[in-house]
Simulated scan of single mutants.
Amino acid sequence: MALSGLFLVLFLAQHFTINFTSVIAPDTFNELSHFMGTNFLVQAVLQPVLIFGVCFHFIMGFVLEIHNRKARAISYVKYNGSANSSWMSRNMIYSGAVILAFLALHFYDFWVPELVHKYVQSHPEDPTRYYEETIAKFESPVRTGLYVISFIFLMLHLLHGFASSFQSVGWNNKYSKGIQGFTKAFAIIIPLGFIFIAVFHYINNL
């Protein structure tokens, strides 16, 4: 669970880096998107690994939640979860479920149309199409709002999950405090960055 989470964090950082270029350099965004969409290694190797990682992480999340609920089958006289754990840690299953729903929307918005464009409609390659196709997704205030809400839940999920991943793999040394600070900064900055991208394109579409 921890290792798959760390793997997905790496993908998240890479995904954000490419998407942010759509704000500052549309031509660069087109170039990077075209490379990611046509490179054999990315499409035939990295993409299947990513899909497997996403599926594995979420399946394990639900399995662990069921296991934990069974382990707590005996009722306590008094239970005060907030005294020993944060809201994020106690509700990872719910933030994860929202993120999973968002991924379904994101695949519907971007991945499925990309497959249709390349393999069903058989359009010729157009390295300049990605920017216009991306910003068109943020014309709707409803869809933009759903993206913003999803990234807020992603932030909550990362605030606990990213840091705890290092603990789960046994990373406990003199660098632990620095890692805690880095993971918290990452968990806040990256989702806020995605929110900025979505809102920026929505405003530009007005």
Results as ranks from 00 to 15, higher is better:
M1F: 06
S4H: 11
S4M: 13
V9L: 09
L10W: 13
Q14H: 12
F16Y: 10
T17E: 07
T17W: 12
N19P: 04
V23P: 02
A25Y: 14
D27Q: 04
D27V: 02
N30S: 07
E31S: 13
H34D: 04
M36C: 13
M36L: 11
T38S: 08
N39K: 01
V42E: 10
V42W: 09
Q43W: 12
V45C: 03
L46N: 08
Q47G: 02
L50P: 04
G53K: 01
F56T: 00
G61T: 06
E65H: 13
R69W: 05
K70Y: 05
A71H: 02
A71L: 04
A71N: 07
A73L: 09
V77A: 13
Y79D: 06
Y79A: 06
G81Q: 07
G81F: 00
S82G: 14
N84D: 11
N84Y: 12
W87S: 04
M92C: 03
M92W: 06
I93Q: 02
S95E: 10
A97V: 10
I99E: 07
F107L: 07
Y108P: 02
D109T: 02
F110K: 02
W111V: 11
H117S: 14
Y119I: 07
E125A: 07
Y130V: 09
Y131Q: 07
A136L: 03
F138H: 07
E139I: 02
S140F: 09
P141T: 02
P141F: 07
G145I: 08
Y147M: 15
I152P: 08
L156N: 05
L158P: 00
L158N: 00
G161A: 08
F162V: 12
S165F: 13
F166H: 15
V169G: 04
N172F: 01
N172E: 15
N172Y: 03
G178V: 12
G178W: 09
I179R: 03
G181F: 03
F182N: 05
I188P: 11
I189R: 00
I190Q: 00
P191E: 00
F194I: 01
I195Y: 13
F196E: 15
I197G: 00
V199F: 01
H201E: 14
H201L: 13
Y202N: 11
N204Y: 01
N204D: 15
L206I: 12
L206R: 04
